[in-house]
Amino acid sequence: MADTTTGTANGAESAPGMPQLDFSTFPNQIFWLFITLVVLYLILSRVALPRIATVLTERQGAIQRDLDKAEEMKRAAVNAENVYNLALAEARAHAGNIVNEAKSEIQKDLDKAIAKADSEIASKAAESEKAIGEIRESAIKSVQEVANSTAADIVKAMMPGTSDAKTIKAAVAARMKG
């Protein structure tokens, strides 16, 4: 069957042989296979495979970059939170200071006001006391005068022309002291 490769072969042979074993077609197949493989090899090794390789590494790089970026952003967020917390604590401390200052200032004013009020009260009290003392003194003097005049009148009435005013005064003063 190796001698014929034309279409009449299958008519002549009742049990057709395998075209795979028709050696006359081998050079043709091998030649074209060789061409095909060389062409494929060149296309693949020059164009297709390097291109796919770059795409794959680029993708890997892009994923890595994105992951790195995400990591960085996360770090930035944590930093921002820390800064925020710090600022918050500072503000809180500051606010506490202001409150304390205000408190102490108010206390000072209060103290001053109290002291002033106290001194005013004290001076008023002293004045009043003095006034009371004067009143008392004048009252006592009035009482003495009244007592003197009354005593003189009584003495004059009981024994006229006997005693002088001086003795009566001394006697009244002695009595009032007792």
Partner: peptide, 19 residues
């Protein structure tokens, strides 16, 4: 087995290595 037959697509002559 006919489907496996190698045929020249242009012309009927014998199959050369370059056909």
């Amino acid at each position: 087995m006919d489907q496996f037959e190698i045929k020249s697509l242009f012309g009927d002559g014998p199959i050369h290595w370059y056909s």
